[in-house]
Nucleic acid binder design. Structure first.
Lengths: 240, 240
DNA sequence: CCAGTATGTGAACAAGTGTTCACCAAGTTG
DNA sequence: CAACTTGGTGAACACTTGTTCACATACTGG
């Protein structure tokens, strides 16, 4: 998880390729080790959350236990649980934005493309359940701090999506504000679907199909509405 | 239900003794008392949740403390926290359905009526924050048991709403299945808005107005889409 | 009116919690 | 090389947790 930075750190400015430290033994700098346990702490939290627990109900000791580390080690990385929570949000937000940005680039919304996007989205959720856990669950329940952080991430995401939609010029008559409103609707629909997907009982292909169909229809309906939408016109930019 | 009675336990066991039971003291049957403390337990949980905590992070002792009762008393009413959670869901579900059913009866969806419905909805949320807390937050986070129970309640609600929509014959060309799909979208939008409303910082009329406007627009867009919607024609598309 | 019983009490428990502190070994730096 | 820094350890603390049990009190039904 969250390991994306590790590799780049170890290939340091030393213009040299990794010296003869060789095959099996990876060179481990102190920073490496630190990042590694930090990651395993975050990972442990996500693991526990994916057993159905809310982040708020996790205990520090539980997490260190799951991470295979002594409780006191926690403090070498985070001041308290709140800080861990924020790190989780940030990490998940980054990863999700990257994932979904790629997905969006693949197609433009139209009947069939919505369906294929949904399918892709579903497989993303299933392959990266942990990131979606944070986003879709803790968005509403976490500590006020965490909620606020997630809200910020989600807004980033909405803005990106709106910008993409504008660039695609599929619905060229809409203002950026309207696009954001629409993307907001799309996002809550997506997050809701994510949590549904995560709750799917295994081996129930029918329920699964039904869920996907419903998801597709809801998105289709939204874009149908978007096609009809007229910006709250008015010479005075906005009267309300 | 959920009568808000609290620390009335100041009367000590010794000394005075409750002389005239009939005067000010209401006659209380044993069942009365039982229901009263049961309610105050549920109420205590909701109070704690409205301070921003998730139900899953509440402790039994915390709740009894808030309810002004000794921890052991809890067991006279609920087997464990799960049972309390389910009671909360049921209670909130009932109350919410009643509240919102009335609201829905007041108007049909059209540009201005959506706005007035939203305003009414907002005041409902603000006046009964506790019920909405359970529905909008724990829907995704609670124990699997709780989530399932909430999902059931929400489905009830969606069905009621779809039936209402059908009875109103505003969008007569749609099958019940499509109506449910649309109402599902409306409901997640409503629940999302509820959680936004509950998070509103006090004394920020501008943010408040913005939120309401966005909410109105999203609902309007949904109904705009609904007007364009065509049932997935085909052999398999039927209502039930 | 009295026996019965249901609701609430208080002490006690083993287990788990967050946090502190001194300590150690191993990477880093001069 | 020695000196220093740092991530991780283990014991210890004061506290909270869920749950048990015997016990009291006051409503209840006969």
């Amino acid at each position: 998880m969250f390991t994306q930075m590790k590799k780049s750190r170890s290939s340091k400015p030393s213009g040299g390729l990794q010296a003869g430290k060789t095959a099996y033994e990876e060179i481990v700098t102190r920073q490496d080790r630190k990042l590694r346990t930090r990651d395993s702490l975050m990972d442990a939290a996500l693991t526990l959350m994916s057993q159905g627990r809310g982040f708020g109900s996790l205990s520090l000791r539980e997490i260190t236990r799951e991470a295979g580390v002594v409780p006191t080690a926690f403090y070498r990385h985070f001041r308290d649980m709140d800080e861990l929570g924020l790190a989780l949000v940030e990490g998940s937000g980054l990863t999700l934005r990257r994932l979904l940005r790629e997905a969006r680039k693949l197609g433009v919304p139209s009947k069939d493309i919505i369906r294929s996007s949904v399918t892709i989205y579903k497989s993303y959720v299933e392959e990266n359940p942990r990131y979606f856990l944070v986003a879709s669950r803790e968005r509403l329940t976490g500590s006020p701090l965490m909620r606020y952080a997630i809200r910020t991430e989600v807004n980033h995401f909405i803005n990106e999506m709106a910008q993409d939609l504008r660039d695609l010029r599929l619905i060229p008559h809409l203002s950026m504000e309207s696009l954001r409103m629409i993307c907001g609707l799309v996002v809550i629909t997506m997050l809701n679907a994510a949590s549904d997907i995560l709750d799917l009982p295994a081996g129930q292909p029918q329920a699964e199909q039904e869920l996907v169909d419903n998801f597709v229809r809801q998105l289709t309906l939204i874009f149908l509405g978007a096609g009809q939408w007229r910006d709250p016109s008015g010479p005075a930019a906005d009267a309300r």
